[in-house]
Design a protein around this nucleic acid. Sequence first.
DNA 1: TATGAATGAGAGTTCATTCAT
DNA 2: AATGAATGAACTCTCATTCAT
Lengths: 199, 199, 199, 199
Amino acid sequence: MTRLSREKAREATRGKLIAAARTCFAQHGFAGASVDVIAETAGYTKGAFYSNFDSKEAVFFLLLEDHLAQEIARGRSATAGSSFNEALNRMIRVYDLEGESQDWCLLAVEFALHAARSESFAARYTELCGNNHVQLGRNLTRLADLAGRPMNKPAYKASKFLAFRTGLALDRTAPAPSLTPGDVRGALGGFLRKVLLRI
Amino acid sequence: MTRLSREKAREATRGKLIAAARTCFAQHGFAGASVDVIAETAGYTKGAFYSNFDSKEAVFFLLLEDHLAQEIARGRSATAGSSFNEALNRMIRVYDLEGESQDWCLLAVEFALHAARSESFAARYTELCGNNHVQLGRNLTRLADLAGRPMNKPAYKASKFLAFRTGLALDRTAPAPSLTPGDVRGALGGFLRKVLLRI
Amino acid sequence: MTRLSREKAREATRGKLIAAARTCFAQHGFAGASVDVIAETAGYTKGAFYSNFDSKEAVFFLLLEDHLAQEIARGRSATAGSSFNEALNRMIRVYDLEGESQDWCLLAVEFALHAARSESFAARYTELCGNNHVQLGRNLTRLADLAGRPMNKPAYKASKFLAFRTGLALDRTAPAPSLTPGDVRGALGGFLRKVLLRI
Amino acid sequence: MTRLSREKAREATRGKLIAAARTCFAQHGFAGASVDVIAETAGYTKGAFYSNFDSKEAVFFLLLEDHLAQEIARGRSATAGSSFNEALNRMIRVYDLEGESQDWCLLAVEFALHAARSESFAARYTELCGNNHVQLGRNLTRLADLAGRPMNKPAYKASKFLAFRTGLALDRTAPAPSLTPGDVRGALGGFLRKVLLRI
DNA sequence: TATGAATGAGAGTTCATTCAT
DNA sequence: AATGAATGAACTCTCATTCAT
C-alpha cells in the first residue's frame, strides 16, 4: 500500500508536469517555455522536473509521441464503421483544429523546424513521422474502401493530407485567422474527397 | 557628394547585412541566428547591425515584407498573359519550393509561430499577411479569368492556397522529405485546379 | 537474535557502501563522485547512504582514517624484523604506489586541498595527519635502529617522506607518467636511505 | 589614440580578470571558484569574463602556462652565473614555496587531478607538463655543469624534483604545516644536491 | 532500515542590447 | 558610421540533502 501510494504520487506528479509542459510548450513554443516555468506551472520546482524526465526535449518528444498515437487510434475508430459519409465526418473531426489539436500542430511545426536544424534530433524525428504517415495511410485506405475507391501510395497521400492540415493550423494560429473552424473542416473534407479519393 | 557617397556606403552596408540575415535566419532559424553571426557573415560587427536596424526582429520583418512583395509582383507577371495553361505553370513556379522559396517558407513559419506568441508583434504581422492574402487573391482572380472560371472570396482562397504551400514546405524541410520537388509542383497545380478553380 | 542479525545487516550495508565510496572517490574524485552513484555502485539508493552516514564528507574521512591506520600497521610489521635491508624493502612496498595505494594518494591529495579551503574540516584533518606523522615517525625510527643510525625529529622526517611520496603519486597519476613503478620504488628507497638515514 | 585607449582598457580588464581568477582559483580551487565570483572579484560581471575568455578552463590553463613559463625563465636566469653555490640558492628561491608559488602549487595539483580524470583535458595538459620537464631539465643540467657534475636523463630528474616540490607544497598547504619555509628550502636544497647531483 | 520524490541553491554558458569611443 | 567591451537576465541541467513513507 505504501508502495502503491508512492507510485501513485509519482504518477500524479508526472501527470501534472506533462500537462504543464503541454500548456507551456503550446503557449510559448519549445524554446520559449523554460523548464523553470513548466515546473512552477505544475506546482513543483525544476528538480522535480528533472527527476521525472531526462531533459526538456525528452518531454516534448513524449508529448508528440502520445499525441500522434492518439490521433492514429482515433482515426482507426473513425474509419471502423460501414458508412463512408459518417467515417469521413469522423475523420474530419479527428483532424480538425479545435481543442487541443491546434496547440499540437504548433508544436509539431516547431519540432519540424528543430529537426531541420539539429542532426542529432533528426533521426528520431524522422522515424516518428514516417511511422505516423504509414499508420495514417492505413486509416485513409480504410476510408477509401468505404468509399469504394482505390488508394495508391497511402503513406504519400497521408503526407499531403498532413501537410495541408499543418498549413491550416498555422493560419488558425494567427491573431486574426483568415479561416474559421468551419472553413477548416470544409477544407479538410474537400481535400480528402478531391485530392485523396478523387471523388 | 560626400553626403551622397556616405549614403551609398550606408546603403551598401545595409544591403550586406540584410543578405547575411536572410542566409543566417534560413539556416538557423530566428532564435538560432545570433546578431553576432549575422553581422560577421556580412563582414561587420554587431555595432553595424544596431546602427542600421532597431532590433533583430525588425530585420526579420523587413525580410518578410520584401519577400512577400516580390512574390506578389512575380505572381502579377505570371498571370499577365493570355494562356491559362502557361499562366498556371508560371504561378506554380512562383510558389514552388525550389531555390530561395524553401528558405522563405521556413522563415514564414517561424514568424507565424512568433506572432502567435508575441502580442506586440502580432499586429504588424496580421496586417502584412492580410494584405498579402488580398494581393494574392487578385492574382488568383486573374488566373481564374484566364480559365474562364468565377472566383469567389479570393482572399480566402489565397489563405487556403498558402496554407497548403506552407504545409508542403514543412514536409520538404524534413531530413527525409516524403515529397519530391515534382510532387510539390503537382500538388500545387492540382490544388489550384481542383480546390480553387474547381476544374 | 533479531537484534543481532539486524546489526549484522546494517554492518553489511555499511561495508558495501564504504567499499563503493572507495572505488568511486578514487575514480572520479571527491567532488566528481555523486552520492547517487556511490549508493548505486553499492547496490542501494541514496537513502541507504544517508541512513548510514552523516554526509559525503564523513565517509571520505572514514576512508582516510582507515587507510592511514592500515598503512601504519603495515609499517609496524615491516620494521619488526632484524634485517635492515629486508625491512627497508618491506617499507618501500608499503609505501610504493602499486595496487590500492595509488588511488589512496589521489584521495589524500584531494583531501589536503579540501582541508586548505574548509575551516570546519581543517581541524579534524590536521589532527589525523599529525597523528599519522608521529606514528610513521616511530616506524622510521625502528628502521633507523635496524640500520644502526640515529633518528632525529622523526615526525618531521615522516612529513618529508610523505610529501615526496605524494608528489610521486601525482606524477604516476598523469595520463603519461614520467616515472615507472620501478622508478618510484627506487626513488622511495633512495629517499629513505639518503635523506632520512643519511647512508 | 582612440584605438589605443580601447585596447588598453581591454587589456586592463583582462588583467584584472586574470588576477581575480588567480586569487579565486588559489583560494577555492578550480571547481570551487565560480565564474560569477571571479568576475565580481575583478569588479565586472560574468559577461565580461566570457567576452575575454572562452571558458573557465581556458583561463586556468592560461594561468598555468604563464606560471610555468615564468618559472622556467627564472630558472634560466638563476643558473646563468658561474658560482654553483649562488646558482643553487637562486634555484631554491625559484622553487621554494613562498609568495605566489604556494598557490600555484595547489592549482597545479588540482589540474593534475583533473587531467587524471578528463581525457579531453589530458592531452593538452600532458604536453604542457612534458615541455616543462624538458625545460627544467635544461636548467638542472646547467646547474650540474656549474657543479662539475654529470647530468643523466635531465627530464626524468626534473620530474622527481617537481614531484618532491609538489609534495612539499601540499604539506605547506595544511592548516598546520609540518614544515617551515626554512625546512622547505632545506629540503629542496638537499634534494638537489643529493638526489640530483649526488654530491 | 531503506526508499526515492522533491527541494533549491548554484553551476557554466549564451546573447540581445547598450553606449562610450 | 561602426566598433566591441560590458551588461544582465535567462537558460538548461546537477546534486547534496531532506523527509514522508
